[in-house]
Simulated assay, not measured.
Amino acid sequence: MDFGLTDEQRSIVEVTRAFVERELYPHEEEVERTGVLRPELAAQIRQKALAAGLYAANMPEEVGGAGLDTVTWVLYEKELGKANYALHYCGVPRPSNILLAGTEAQREKYLYPCVNGEKIDCLAMTEPGAGSDMRGMRTKATREGGEGGGWRIKGSKHFISHADEADFVILVAVTGIDDAGRSQMSTFLVDLDAPGVALHDGYRNVSHRGYTNSIIDFDDVYVGPDALLGEEGKGFELAGEWLGSTRLQVAATCLGRAERALDLSIQHAATREQFGQPIGRFQGVGFKLADMATELRAAELMTLHAAWKYDQGTATDADIAMAKLKATEMLALVADEAIQIHGGMGLMDELPLERIWRDARIERIWDGTSEIQRHIVSRSLLRPLGA
């Protein structure tokens, strides 16, 4: 693994960083204060992201994306992650790579418009009774008209990110039971304006102000046979493939926020004086900075190593789980220590630290809790021994 960045990688980092500082940072105060990302502001940022070549950068070149390798994509995500989540995730969309599993007709209808900024997707897996246990979901899709027919969908999903801005939903639903009595799931592409689809406001969240979640009800919704994404009964595998890359995305954005918090802490420790000297000279502060920097570096190396292995085709679920686990828990530590170093001002909204601290909490929950990541890692260690 080469630890040096190529000229192209350095350029992408610089362009992304400049965009974040110029186009996203100035709007953070508004979004944090109001809790809303105005649709017209989101549209304005999307147009600028398109012009800057940052839109759909996670997609391969053959479908109109930037074709970034995974390591470069992680570096890009790290820079975006420094900003308010709603601004960078909704303002600089990265369509779900699960759409790459579609037929050419599905790509024409859904993927290419997402890449071109004409449509927005959302993913619906989580239910009130099924979070980490995907096979516990109850939303069902029943085939109509025999083999080759369409489907009737009934059920409800919640915690569906930015569904209120989306044009269609990538839906995972139960379509059968296997020989072991486990639910078989399939994935569908469903337009949100289809008859029987009802979108409701979700829950108020302490983390990521301006980034919405919704509840989606499916009341006897009919979709044609062309709505099936991938193979029938293979939705679990398809979702698992998608979750791998998004867990790296979570890790990368955590790195960005931690770096921003550390930079602010270093600056404060070097300039804030107490008892006649900068507070960074006191071991109680200086050692905090050392621990924050060490944990950040360790998480960054683990994330980049997992990304590198992903590019080589050798990454395991455990590699990605360890990266997400380390980066999310590192961010919690760094955010907390950053506030401690700043004292009372750290909790004031004049600085982004209280926001970073609040936002850090959700990272250990979504896209697989820390407990799920530990389960994945421990299972990978014990299974070869038959345990």
Rank of each mutant, 00 (worst) to 15 (best):
Y222S: 11
Y222W: 12
G224A: 11
D226H: 13
A227M: 08
A227R: 06
A227T: 02
A227H: 03
A227D: 03
L229V: 00
L229R: 08
L229A: 04
G230R: 09
E232I: 06
G233H: 11
G233A: 08
G233L: 04
G233I: 01
F236V: 00
L238R: 08
L238Q: 14
L238W: 03
G240T: 06
E241S: 05
E241F: 01
W242D: 11
L243Y: 14
L243V: 15
G244E: 09
G244Y: 01
S245Y: 05
S245P: 00
R247G: 07
R247K: 15
L248C: 09
L248M: 10
Q249P: 03
Q249C: 05
V250W: 07
A252R: 02
T253H: 04
C254P: 01
C254A: 07
C254I: 00
L255K: 03
G256S: 01
A258L: 05
E259Q: 15
E259S: 08
A261G: 11
L262D: 01
D263M: 14
D263I: 04
L264A: 10
L264W: 10
S265F: 02
H268Y: 15
H268A: 10
A269C: 08
A270Y: 03
T271P: 04
T271H: 14
T271E: 15
T271W: 11
R272G: 03
R272V: 00
Q274C: 12
F275G: 07
G276Y: 09
G276K: 05
G276E: 08
G276R: 11
